[in-house]
């Protein structure tokens, strides 16, 4: 691995029920020198955040999860970890969803498919500001 030695100790939490998508995204992020963690439902993600929340730099959150709505997860994350930026990553979010998420404090609202370079640029920007 070219950049493995440059592993930046930054955790990115991916919350998405699409297993293959989440796995590939996670691997690509890791290839770019970041840590990433995957949760496939809202409850697991919120539980994981309780113990590992402090290390998380960015959260990628899908709106449609098997157990909860993405907006519900977002609300709880913002209550427990208001400083972690949350990027909403959705397959078919409406304008209404976008407005609701922005009101709830989402950092960005992105439609799938995701451009990894755009994500990396955002991540660098977040790291610099924090």
């Amino acid at each position: 691995m070219k950049n493995i030695e440059k592993m930046k100790h930054t955790d990115i939490l991916i919350i998405d029920d699409e297993i293959k998508f989440a796995a590939m995204l996670s691997k690509r992020i890791q290839l770019r020198g970041y840590h990433s963690e995957i949760c496939h439902d809202g409850k697991t993600a919120l539980g994981w955040l309780k113990t590992h929340g402090t290390a998380v730099t960015l959260i990628l959150l899908d709106l449609q999860l098997p157990d909860m709505y993405g907006t519900q997860v977002l609300t709880q994350i913002k209550m427990s970890h208001p400083d972690i930026p949350v990027i909403i990553l959705t397959g078919h979010g409406t304008e209404q969803d976008r407005q609701e998420c922005e009101q709830l404090g989402a950092y960005l609202f992105i439609h799938k498919p995701l451009d990894i370079d755009q994500l990396m640029t955002l991540l660098e920007k977040i790291r610099e500001t924090s």
């Binding site: 293959k20 998508f21 590939m24 397959g91 439609h111 498919p113 995701l114 990894i116």
Partner: peptide, 12 residues
């Protein structure tokens, strides 16, 4: 969109 996202990420 979901399978497209999978294609996108896997190919990437």
């Amino acid at each position: 969109n979901n399978p497209l996202a999978v294609i996108n990420q896997t190919a990437g």
